[in-house]
């Protein structure tokens, strides 16, 4: 899971400044964006790891994976996008940060346990 985040989440965050400058974001907005990505991408990796282990070994696995991931990813993406949105509107994005942080703290200890038990059932 950590490895997955290192190869997908981290490069994305490192690329953020380039994307931000090409989209004419201000310096402050870029830092806010980076923090929101730091909080958000590990959540995506953690949820992804659970759902993938749930559908592993099933015939319709890939379609099912998309169907199951879509509803659980969208709220995270909305919160992440909401951070920059409310910041650029002049509202403090602390509420979105708190929510993302809470979800992250909640999902991190659960994800390995849940993935492990799902893997055990699907493969064992």
């Amino acid at each position: 899971m950590l490895a997955h985040w290192l190869v997908t989440g981290l490069p994305f965050i490192l690329l953020t400044p380039i994307a931000a400058f090409s989209l004419h974001c201000s310096m402050d907005e870029m830092w806010i964006l980076i923090v929101s990505l730091l909080l958000g991408t590990p959540i995506l990796s953690a949820i992804g790891s659970i759902v993938v282990s749930l559908t592993l070994g099933l015939r319709e696995g890939s379609v099912l994976l998309a169907l199951l991931l879509l509803p659980v990813y969208i709220p995270i993406l909305i919160f992440g996008a909401g951070v920059v949105n409310s910041f650029s509107l002049g509202v403090s994005p602390i509420a979105e940060f708190a929510l993302l942080g809470a979800i992250l703290i909640g999902i991190l200890p659960i994800a390995p346990v849940a993935s492990a038990s799902a893997l055990k059932i699907n493969l064992g």
């Binding site: 659980v72 038990s117 799902a118």
Partner: peptide, 8 residues
């Protein structure tokens, strides 16, 4: 497990 993840 899937139901519980979705509870968010």
């Amino acid at each position: 497990i899937m139901v519980l993840i979705g509870f968010v």
